[in-house]
């Protein structure tokens, strides 16, 4: 079986799920080639070898400097129709998902998207993917060639990089098609750990604003005062997150009330995450929030209400005021982590 793994990157910085995909490809068995497209991305070819690729197909062209899905799809579809791989793997990022989708149209195949487990069934990949926000699991196959699969981040183990490992580097000619659109600029997201890559997440909900002991500065309307109080609550959460090297998450109620930007929302209409540790503070545990975080390995819930549904999903629970528990936990963790 000839497997290609598409290495997704942002400005020559690879997305970690790309390396996980190499590991997943090797676990299936077969010849694993990594496909690196872009401009000034030679370094990614070396990393791909180190993470286990036997071959790297490197396609560089100035027209591919910015990722525009149309151009990348044209380039990748042309390569695949020449070399006829049996299986194309992508990480499920916003780029990987759409690129896989377009390539499937070009090659008259189909995509098994956001897959969390794979096994071989004859010469077919039998994939498992969560549907209905993880409330159910679907088993699915692709009955065309190449089979196309996108893999959910953190669902497959990232291989240990073997420094100095190398393989066959093949420079490929890319046809980049007609430019449909142009990228005019980027604004990088404000620092911190990204939610989808995070192995630890500390989240806050509506409970962040519920601290009657705080007096908002004079002259604020009731709405402004509520947001201000919530921001003090989220500041405690951010401090704990920093101690743990964690990303900060939030419930939709917190986002809708303007306590914190939408980029931090976890759940059905936010980000789906699966960290090793998820600490939910002042979050009730609505079904749409659970949909986004129920696959976390260890869930800790801190909530004033002993009957909050979140406790049914948690490994450890504390009934208490987050404004007292979170700073105390921060001190206790700092003492242990140095």
């Amino acid at each position: 079986m000839k497997i290609w793994v598409y290495i997704d990157h942002f400005k020559a910085d690879a997305v970690s799920a790309s390396w996980e995909a190499i590991g997943a490809a090797k676990a299936l068995g077969g010849d694993v080639a990594a496909v690196v497209l872009g401009f000034g991305v030679e370094n990614l070819a070396n990393s791909a070898f180190e993470y286990g690729a036997d071959e790297v197909l490197l396609g560089q062209d100035a027209a591919l400097e910015d990722f525009r899905v149309e151009n990348y799809a044209t380039a990748l579809s042309a390569l695949a129709s020449d070399a006829t791989p049996d299986l194309l793997l992508f990480p499920t990022t916003s780029r990987g998902r759409e690129l896989a989708g377009m390539v499937a149209m070009d090659l008259e195949s189909g995509v098994l998207v956001d897959v969390v487990a794979m096994e071989m069934d004859g010469d077919k990949v039998l994939a498992t993917r969560p549907i209905y926000a993880g409330k159910l699991l679907q088993k699915t196959v692709c009955n065309a060639t190449p089979q196309i699969v996108t893999l959910r981040g953190r669902a497959f183990e990232k291989p240990e990089a073997e420094s100095g490992r190398s393989g066959t580097l093949t420079q490929v000619q890319v046809t980049s098609g007609d430019e449909k659109s142009t990228v005019e600029g980027y604004a990088e997201a404000g620092g911190g750990v990204s939610l989808t890559d995070a192995s630890v997440i500390v989240s806050g909900g509506r409970g962040t604003s519920n601290n009657p002991n705080l007096t908002a500065p004079d002259g604020m309307s009731e709405d402004e005062a509520e947001i201000w109080r919530a921001q003090q609550g989220f500041a405690l959460i951010a401090e704990l997150a920093e101690t743990l090297g964690a990303a900060v998450g939030a419930s939709r109620a917190a986002v809708d009330a303007n306590y914190i930007p939408y980029a931090n929302q976890v759940g059905q209409t936010g980000k789906v995450v699966s960290p090793d540790l998820y600490i939910a503070n002042g979050i009730s545990g609505a079904i749409q929030h659970l949909a986004g975080m129920r696959n976390s390995k260890v869930i800790v819930a801190i909530n004033k209400d002993a009957d909050a549904p979140i406790f049914k999903f948690a490994r450890y629970g504390v009934v208490g005021d987050l404004h007292e528990i979170v700073p105390a936990l921060n001190e206790a963790m700092k003492a242990r982590l140095g």
Binding site: L126, K135, L136, L137, D321
Partner: peptide
């Protein structure tokens, strides 16, 4: 081209919550 072979309930998460209580926040 994409065929659904089956739909399953996710495996039950075997978590029993341990409530941590007693004493001051610290």
């Amino acid at each position: 081209t994409v065929e659904v072979v089956g739909i399953e309930n996710p495996p039950k998460r075997d978590v029993r919550v341990e409530m941590i209580d007693g004493g001051s926040p610290a």
